[in-house]
Design a protein around this nucleic acid. Structure first.
Ligand code: MN
Ligand code: MN
Ligand code: MN
Ligand code: MN
Lengths: 219, 219
DNA sequence: CTTTTTATTTAGCTTTGCCTAAAAATTGTT
DNA sequence: AACAATTTTTAGGCAAAGCTAAATAAAAAG
């Protein structure tokens, strides 16, 4: 089964929204994520439901069916593999690859994905630390946690970012915070949740908003 | 200016038809090349003319404007660069890359093409021997000639193919005829233009139809 | 120079994916 | 419970890109 670019984008958006909040995904949330109107979402949802890609009950939001979920995952797999290609092979900075991957993820060819993955040496995460599903759609969610919720004076490893916007990623570049950086929270300000952190051999003050968008794991 | 996938495909088809026959390209020829109907072609031609991509006079066919020509060339450039990527980096056989390149050629990103070209070490021809335009749209048509028109007992170098269909390319693989092969015409049959040829260290009998689809250059 | 055949264009319809505005259902508030 | 606000769906339309069938122009044949 082949689905249109638009259908794939809806499935992907629903998948991501489903990951975030645990219950049925609302029409409005999808509309916001897709930067479109709620009425357009209702239209598309009906088409997806007719193709058995989502479970849909009027006024109660949608959830992906098994088929919808695996289709979404395969698109995400391609997106992340292409991001690795762009960064590792073509030398793109990590904040410039998302929009191009949004296009590349819709190229239809099983063979291409398989060969690309081999060429890249079977990477397990993309340049933003997000896991890359294998050809069966399996991937392990590493137990990562947001820096904002970390303990003082523990050594952590930066493993990903929540916000992958170019603005945020360039901010991290400026502070030399990369995936793989060692991070320790030196102090926390009760008043605004800002914190002083040690990144490898540098110290920085960062706001709550920053700390809410950096994933770390214990090391 | 950004053009739709369909518009790009029309421009490319018109460019190729223009290369072949020297005069205005007819509606029917475009329809056949695009595997669509003449009425659809007329519709699209009007849109392209409105955008100043083709010169169009009712009932007299079309020709590309300077803008149309350079747009077509940029799409062809991307197509051929991606084919090189697929063959040289991902190990695709040369008969399996065209359809995937048909999709990849529409990815929009100047930066991507530039970096891809550098990654591939600025190739001058694609896997089928067709020249790759540079970023300004310049490319030299190498003086190649069809094997069917070659002289006896002269040494030639295989430089390209006219038909890039999977069927023809697999036939060439079977006979170990590649780009770079040394070819000499040993004898010609007047009756049906079939010929005996020497390919590197092997001898083959080939029909006129085969000889009409192999490009060689003197060496 | 007509007539016939072929090529091209026009007219009208379809599907996909989107929109606005209005209607209906759900949820929140007194 | 009744009203208000919000969310979701429906109705009606639009643009892109295609189609078939009919009309018209150009080319070929007699
Ligand atoms: Mn991305
Ligand atoms: Mn990513
Ligand atoms: Mn090709
Ligand atoms: Mn080619």
């Amino acid at each position: 089964m082949k689905y249109s670019r638009s259908e794939e984008n809806y499935l992907k958006a629903i998948f991501h929204l489903q990951q975030a909040g645990s219950r049925g995904v609302s029409t409005n949330d999808i509309a916001e994520a897709m930067e479109t109107k709620a009425s357009s979402v209702t239209d598309m949802i009906k088409k997806l439901a007719a193709k058995d890609l989502v479970n849909y009950v009027k006024y109660q939001g949608v959830s992906l069916t098994e088929s919808g979920r695996s289709t979404a995952i395969m698109v995400i797999r391609k997106h992340r593999l292409w991001e690795v290609f762009l960064v590792n092979k073509l030398d793109f900075p990590w904040d410039k690859v998302h929009d191009i991957a949004e296009q590349l993820e819709h190229i239809k060819s099983e063979e291409l994905v398989t060969k690309l993955e081999a060429f890249l040496d079977y990477p397990s995460v993309d340049p933003h630390g997000d896991p890359i599903p294998d050809q069966h759609g399996n991937f392990k969610q590493t137990q990562k946690r947001l820096l904002v919720k970390c303990d003082l004076n523990e050594k952590y490893l930066c493993v990903g970012v929540k916000d992958s916007s170019s603005e945020f990623l360039r901010f991290l570049d400026k502070k030399h915070i990369n995936i793989g950086s060692n991070i320790t929270v030196l102090s926390k300000e009760e008043f605004d949740d800002s914190m002083q952190i040690q990144v490898d051999d540098q110290k920085h003050f960062i706001s709550k908003k920053i700390a809410e968008n950096i994933y770390v794991s214990a090391q």
